[in-house]
Computed example of a mutant assay.
Amino acid sequence: MPIIKHEQFLEAPVEVCFDLARNVDIHTQTTPKTNEKAVGGVTEGLLEQGDMVTWEATHLGVRQRLTAKITHMERPTMFVDCMVKGAFHSFTHTHHFQEVSGGTLMIDRFEYKSPFGLVGVMADKLFLEKYMTNFIISRARELKRIAEGY
């Protein structure tokens, strides 16, 4: 089961970073390459513990839907979203926010399991893990850009 971890420093207060990361409207702004939009559940504003959102996006050339639920939240230092329905067998994405001198250290930990057994494991090694890593890094950089201009 691949685990992707990425750290991004943001020159912004921890509360701002936390709220931007769980804002549905901001999420769509940070994912322009996949054209993500919320089409079900909470479709705007801030996500709270227990909320579900269904995203529609184009990944690897395929238009797809994924529903995630906010399963845990400790404002303003952490929240967790887990896939309820979608292309993965499962995933858990933990978002940590640590106040540091001069700003916030945002730490993404994305743990997932691909579908299709051995074929999925091969897809991870061939392209999926790299694709997901790049997706998470790209979104973190966009959040940094937005937070530092806030």
Rank of each mutant, 00 (worst) to 15 (best):
R109D: 02
Q8S: 11
L143P: 02
Y150I: 03
S90I: 03
F91R: 03
F18A: 03
E11V: 08
D19K: 10
H93P: 05
R65H: 13
P2T: 08
E129G: 04
K113A: 10
M132A: 13
F116L: 12
I26P: 07
T28R: 12
G41R: 00
Q29A: 13
S90P: 00
F18L: 08
H59V: 09
T58H: 07
F110L: 12
A38L: 09
S90K: 06
A68S: 15
I70H: 04
E74P: 05
V42E: 02
T104W: 03
F97T: 02
D124R: 01
M78Q: 13
I4Q: 01
T94R: 11
R139C: 14
W55E: 07
E15F: 02
I4C: 07
H89Y: 11
G45E: 04
F91G: 06
S114N: 11
Y131C: 09
H6S: 12
H72E: 14
A57K: 07
A12I: 00
L60T: 07
T67Q: 15
R145G: 06
G120M: 02
Q8N: 12
K37D: 01
E111R: 10
Q49S: 04
Y131L: 12
R141C: 12
Y150P: 05
T34C: 11
L118V: 04
I136C: 12
C17R: 00
G40C: 09
V39P: 14
L47A: 06
L46A: 12
P32D: 15
D124G: 01
L105F: 04
L10R: 00
M1Q: 04
L46H: 10
A21H: 10
E148S: 06
F127W: 13
E129R: 11
H89M: 06
N35Y: 03
R141I: 02
G40N: 06
F97I: 01
G41E: 04
K130L: 12
N134K: 14
H59M: 14
V100H: 01
T133H: 10
T133P: 01
A12W: 06
G45S: 06
V121I: 02
V42Q: 04
F116G: 03
D81P: 01
K37S: 09
Q98I: 11
V39E: 14
L47N: 05
T34L: 04
T31K: 14
G45P: 03
E56T: 05
H96P: 02
E15G: 09
K130I: 06
E74Y: 02
F18G: 08
V62W: 06
S138F: 09
G103P: 09
A147R: 02
E7M: 11
M122C: 12
H72K: 13
M106K: 03
V119F: 00
L47S: 07
F79L: 04
L143V: 01
T94Y: 06
Q8M: 15
M78C: 14
M73D: 03
G86R: 00
F91H: 15
T77Y: 08
A123W: 04
Y150N: 14
T31I: 07
R22H: 10
L20G: 11
A87N: 10
C17N: 08
L143R: 02
S138K: 06
F9W: 00
I137S: 05
